[in-house]
């Protein structure tokens, strides 16, 4: 079992590593804050704003995971495209201001808490018990590398994505427009 690194091993605050560590901590704070806002907001638009903050923080994680391209795409696709689409949906559907909730089940609160705690405990145990080793060949996360990987080792996935998109489009048309009737 790994012994957690002691506080004395931490890099000095005003070194390059130390500053990076602070930025990393900020990213964690941004993600958690965003997630908290999204989960607790009374109004849908505020929850969406929380998601935007959360996704931005996740983009930061991707950067630290040595994948700047993924970080860029996260901002472009999730923060940009998906959240804007959700905001359009909210505007078009015009949901009611007041939040309606069904009759609260006495058990559901504690049960949900217990399950969440179990998942959290499980993840912690997993993280602490594993001997994390860096990969022998670390990827640089460039677009070129991702492109080569997609068209060689994962060509099947690349092909199948087109099928997923086709079905998503047909499904959206059938549900939203009622499809073509015979």
């Amino acid at each position: 079992m790994n012994s957690p690194a002691s506080f004395m091993d931490a890099p000095a605050l005003f070194s390059a590593d130390g500053l990076l560590g602070i930025i990393f901590l900020i990213m964690i704070a941004v993600t958690l804050t965003g997630g908290f806002i999204a989960a607790t907001a009374e109004r849908l638009v505020r929850a969406l704003a929380g998601i935007v903050i959360c996704f931005t923080g996740v983009a930061g994680f991707y950067y630290f995971l040595n994948s700047p391209f993924m970080a860029m795409m996260q901002i472009l696709i999730y923060v940009g495209a998906i959240c804007i689409t959700i905001s359009f949906a909210i505007m078009l559907a015009a949901p009611e201001r007041t939040r309606k909730t069904g009759p609260a089940n006495l058990l559901s609160g504690p049960l949900g808490f217990i399950i969440a705690a179990l998942v959290f405990g499980g993840m912690c145990a997993l993280a602490l018990r594993t001997q994390w080793e860096p990969f022998a060949k670390s990827a640089t996360g460039t677009v070129r590398e991702i492109g080569i990987e997609l068209l060689t080792n994962h060509s099947m996935v690349f092909e199948l994505i087109s099928l997923v998109l086709l079905i998503a489009i047909i499904g959206a048309i059938v549900i939203a427009r009622g499809g073509r009737t015979g």
Partner: peptide
Amino acid sequence: GFVLEFYCL
């Protein structure tokens, strides 16, 4: 409520 895309899906 028949839609032509039914069998396709």
